[in-house]
């Protein structure tokens, strides 16, 4: 084994170990249906997310960001993450809408994991704006449709968080009418999106 290969192997083992430790310490973010929805505590909001996990065992690592509204704070150009890390497990979830009850703030999905036998399965989304979402206190924050393609390649995953507010509007309005009456729907997109505001305006 050449020295370079050895170095990569050691680094790989170390990185996997760090990743494994982080995932092991991550707090679970539980996906709820409307029937088992917990009450909101102070300074919390609901997240409404459409999930189509393609019958995979995918899970996400989510971190809250230090921020001013939808603008994340940066230190030396890097995002500043708060503790702890969260793990959102999608395995065994049927396609549909789910709710989370979490503290208000700006969040970053930092990693998408999709275990499949011995293939590399981590997709880093650490500083990607399209993997960010915003939670407003006492509101139902629609953050998008999370689509994990069942079919994948050996080296890439097909995973997207799509802003499908209008596409899913009819279903959201029908299925979550009572929730939205108490906790109004807002856009939880990571970047500014005025559509709902315009559409809802009288």
């Amino acid at each position: 084994m050449s020295s370079n290969k050895y170095l990569f192997t050691v680094l790989g083992v170390l990185l996997l170990s760090v990743s494994a430790i982080m995932n092991a310490n991550a707090q679970p973010l539980t996906l709820h249906s409307l029937d088992d929805l917990p009450e909101l505590k102070r300074s919390m909001g609901y997240v409404l997310v459409g999930v189509d996990n393609g019958n995979t065992d995918a899970f996400l690592t989510v971190r809250r960001l230090e921020s001013d509204g939808r603008t994340p704070r940066r230190s030396r150009g890097k995002l500043v993450f708060e503790q702890p890390a969260y793990r959102m497990d999608l395995s065994g979830r049927e396609a549909g809408f789910y709710l989370l009850a979490i503290p208000a703030g700006l969040y970053q999905i930092t990693q998408v994991s999709y275990p499949y036998f011995d293939l590399p399965f981590r997709l880093s989304t650490k500083d990607q704006k399209e993997w960010r979402f915003h939670v407003e206190e006492d509101k139902t924050n629609y953050i998008g449709q999370l689509v994990v393609a069942n079919e994948r390649s050996r080296s890439t995953l097909d995973v997207n968080l799509l802003n499908r507010l209008a596409t899913q509007w009819d279903q959201i309005r029908t299925d979550y009418q009572s929730l939205l009456a108490e906790f109004p729907l807002v856009s939880g997109a990571g970047s500014r999106d005025d559509f709902l505001e315009h559409f809802s305006a009288e």
């Binding site: 799509l162 499908r164 209008a166 596409t167 315009h198 559409f199």
Partner: peptide
């Protein structure tokens, strides 16, 4: 994305 068409439809 098809969302464009749906946004226009709703509006």
């Amino acid at each position: 994305d098809v969302e464009h068409a749906h946004r226009l439809r709703l509006m």
